[in-house]
Nucleic acid binder design. Structure first.
Lengths: 213, 213, 213, 213
DNA sequence: TATGAATGAGCGTTCATTCAT
DNA sequence: GATGAATGAACGCTCATTCAT
């Protein structure tokens, strides 16, 4: 139903701007010209509305990540994936909103977490695993030293760009953040560090068979 | 006053575990054996309590950052600063709490922001500027190419380690995050990229004065 | 109409188990596979549904009571009427439900009362009057002293058995209630007290025409 | 606290006149000049308020019943107990209210029942057991045939007078109910039936070692 | 006839805040 | 300094009711 979708979108807008508890059902509904009751017709309660929103957001994300990227140049694919991501985090209003919403995840009530935990975790893990797959492929292609743990490396990279994006979103610094330039810088540095199988240096970081926590 | 300090600490504990609006004055006071009213004697209201907490937390941080680090090896000082930071984010309960509190900053009400904005920004900026100063020094020491913008580089590094810390705090990934090893990896990579003034490569990233906003 | 009758029955089931305000129109309709709207097509509102239910229930009851019982042994007829009633209150599910519904009468809203007051009162009065008629007849047959007020006696008897039934329905006591045995006991006792026109004892209870309120 | 007691009394007044769900906390508080919040200061919620009310009401009742009535004439004591009870149900406003409150017990929510079930049952059972004790004593005194089950007889008597009281409270009949006269009538009838150990009639009702349900 | 969608009043509950003591 | 008592605004949620289809 049309209304349902609009309620979800309205919730995304509201809940990316205010904390879960500050957003009232009334507000979500009235912002698109409906009454509170309409929201309760489509969703059991406020938590349920949020859960449905997250589900609909994660649906897309997960599929995207899970498609096996058939890049001929896997290392390049990683770089361009994050370039694209950084670019979106600057230019796409919707993308910004989704990330702001997710940054508020700590305020979500227990029962919401109970229902979205695996989704949220799946989202983050899917992204990391996609990166991991690409890194493994890059190792196969000889672009990355084989002794590096693709698993742990994928985690670092994902975390790093998450940090970059958050700072961008929050506008914390007075110095400008040119995310694309910075992305390139990071990848160039990492490439240099990773590509050259320096015989004296082998396995320096011992990135291996990740100790799954 | 003793009570005042204990109220602040109690607020830190509570507000690092729950969102601002979910923490009640009652709770803050009762957790240390006082009644709500006591909290209202020491602080005008809940927001005021939080502002005072943040002030007291930032006080320390800022001073630390502003002390002019007289490291002989500036590049090494940056590395060991972040190593220390990552280590603390694993081992110090209080440090974790402070970071969790700050991660909830988006939920703070408008009026609180009005009073802590410059403090919070100052905290982040102080850290970045400390890094920046060290990077400039490292440039002076010839450890880093002079054409790199220390300002922007400091921002990237700070953001990166923020990302690392957040992921650590949230336990998002199934793969383990060995923060110290990863820190070293990142610094080694960056060192390689930054130290060698490759004549063909000069100013590739154009890290310069942009000072946007 | 088929649907109408099923809605009434569904309402009886629901409203004998929950209080009027706890039963929703939705529930009444959905329990028999219809939607709320259907109920509103057949009945103006929830109160109207209840009124119609009560009307349909009282219809039967009243007729039954008003039929002039042509028992040759009127005193025996009273006894067997209450024996039958107690028996039904144990064995007939529907009878139990109707009594449970009526026990909840205090929760019915004002406007419902406005419409069913005379019906409900009529129901109770019909029963009492039937008993009264039988008692008068029994007096005519010489089974009961003529100086006893049949009106008031009928009230006592009706009330007494109401009490017995309620306690049975609610399962209040830990001791068993064998209603039929108890019924006989009561009638035997009353018979003894009533049948013997003891000349010294005449009009001891002065059960007469008071017709208060 | 004074206020607490007044809230309980106000709740008694309100909840004896309307069903639990129709009585709002606001109303209970405002009727005695307080705000809703005051009620929530003294009681956790509406159910808790009711539970406390019932507790305070049952406290008295139970003690009264449990005191071992040292009547020299036990049979007379039973009679005068119920005479007194019927009299109160006519004349004492408060007694009427308590009984009206209890008549609404079916509407009380589940969690309230969970907390008052044993109290309520205890109240009814205490009364019945007091009657039972007196009947046993009366058997000892030779006023009642020894073959009658005091347990079951006490249940019938209690139920009977409950029925009488309910009809009185509800004003159901058009004929007047002179409860005291009726009480005497019932006791006289029962006395006759019970006192005379008619050899041909022994154990007619088989009121024995009650089959505890 | 029947349904799905939507409305809006009303209540329970929480909690920041105030204030007399 | 600290407490207990009280206030009142705000919000979640339910549900009777309406109405276009």
């Amino acid at each position: 139903m049309e209304t349902r979708a609009r309620l979800l979108e309205s919730a995304l807008v509201a809940m990316s701007e205010k904390s879960f508890s500050k957003v009232s059902m009334n507000e979500i509904a009235e912002n698109i010209g409906f009454s509170k009751g309409a929201a309760y017709w489509h969703f059991k309660n406020k938590g349920d509305l949020l859960v449905n929103l997250i589900e609909s957001l994660c649906e897309d994300g997960r599929k995207e990540f899970e498609s096996n990227c058939a890049a001929p140049d896997a290392a390049g694919a990683v770089r361009s994936y994050f370039r694209e991501k950084m670019s979106e985090s600057i230019h796409s209003e919707r993308y910004k909103r989704i990330n702001k919403l997710f940054q508020r995840k700590m305020e979500w009530p227990e029962d919401v977490w109970g229902r979205v935990y695996s989704l949220m975790r799946g989202w983050a893990e899917s992204e990391r695993r996609m990166v991991e797959r690409l890194l493994v492929k890059a190792q196969g292609e000889g672009m990355i030293r084989p002794d590096v743990s693709a698993g742990e490396l994928s985690a670092v990279i994902t975390a790093i760009f998450h940090g970059l994006m958050v700072f961008q979103l929050e506008g914390i610094f007075s110095v400008g953040m040119d995310l694309l330039k910075q992305t390139d810088f990071i990848f160039d540095a990492f490439s240099k560090e990773l590509e050259s199988p320096d015989p004296n240096d082998t396995n320096k970081y011992n990135f291996q068979k990740e100790q799954v926590r």
